[in-house]
């Protein structure tokens, strides 16, 4: 998970515990920088995660995600 403090590059982050593994964010990402973990979270879903580079901060994954708090996107 990326740092939440001052940044100069855009990033997205997934709260792996709140993610329900629907994968809608994966499909909408123009840069395909979101992937699905092989690990299960405590609710037994495979959560999405940011692969770590090239996020443009467009926010499409945020709106595609049905969970209020699972995805956070920062665009400096």
């Amino acid at each position: 998970m990326a740092a939440k403090t001052a940044v100069d590059v855009p990033f997205m982050e997934v709260n792996g515990e709140l993610c329900k593994g629907c994968q809608l964010c994966v499909g909408v990402c123009p840069k395909t920088v979101i992937a699905v973990s092989e690990k299960l979270n405590s609710a037994s879903y495979h959560p999405a995660y940011y692969t770590g580079a090239d996020c443009t901060g467009c926010g499409l994954c945020f709106y595609a995600c049905p969970e209020p708090a699972a995805i956070r996107v920062v665009k400096p």
Partner: peptide, 20 residues
Amino acid sequence: PAKEATHYCPGCGHGNIHKM
């Protein structure tokens, strides 16, 4: 237990609409 997640099923449109 999951007090920060919704009760909706994975991929449900309600969540998107609620957010907007």
